[in-house]
Nucleic acid binder design. Structure first.
Lengths: 111, 111
DNA sequence: TCAACGCATGAGCACATGTTCATGTGTCGG
DNA sequence: CCGACACATGAACATGTGCTCATGCGTTGA
């Protein structure tokens, strides 16, 4: 365990858990650089309004995103710089080629 | 969506999902800088051998960790530099104080 | 005031997931 | 070869989670 307290581990895990759902990750990614209304997100990602709202609620509660009323509409944006930077970092790394040795199989190391 | 393909979004979400479980995150964090055997991880984190092995299997299958036999024991280490760097980055950011502006229309009342 | 728009929320269901218990597989000492 | 050690794996169960359907709430325009 590095320099993270138990509570911090829980918090980080919670953020990862929320970003671990494809639709939710897409929502967050779509708001990585821009601000979008709920309707925009629905249309862009092809999700139902209800589902989008449910996901946004989770992201809001976790302080990952923030909502702002604009008349009848509500605009969402990322509200956590750690998450934003972390995502940018992850994206940058993931764009590079991903090389790997084959699955399973426990390698041998001499004794 | 930024510069990530649909398949990449799925992959990133999968990594986040696996890191989104506290015990699994603890396992990965414990192997962030060092190599540990299954027994070490069990003892350090206070998890049952079976549970630890199940989690390690998931992390192995997802190419996040790698196993190496050392006699009777099996040592695990992180096998994905993206994940390692991403985690280090996240940790570094999470250690800093977490500020949050609480203005705004839609707010969540605690439950 | 009223209807329509835009979004939020609760209920409910099918399915995924974390955990434990029991058992299987590979390895070393004697 | 045999027993013990270290780990992997399957089954089973309780709980969590994503999704849809229906409905509620706030806002704007007429």
């Amino acid at each position: 365990m590095p320099q993270l307290s138990e509570a911090q581990v829980i918090d980080v895990a919670e953020v990862f858990r929320l970003l671990g759902e494809p639709n939710r990750l897409r929502i967050v990614l779509s708001c990585l650089d821009e601000v979008h209304t709920v309707g925009d997100i629905c249309e862009t990602l092809g999700l139902s309004q209800s589902l989008t709202s449910h996901h946004l609620r989770l992201l809001r509660t976790a302080r990952i995103m923030r909502a702002t009323r604009q008349g009848r509409q509500v605009a969402y944006t990322i509200d956590d710089d750690h998450v934003r930077d972390g995502l940018r970092n992850m994206i940058a790394h993931f764009v590079e080629p991903h090389e790997h040795t084959d699955d399973l199989a426990i390698d041998e190391a001499g004794s």
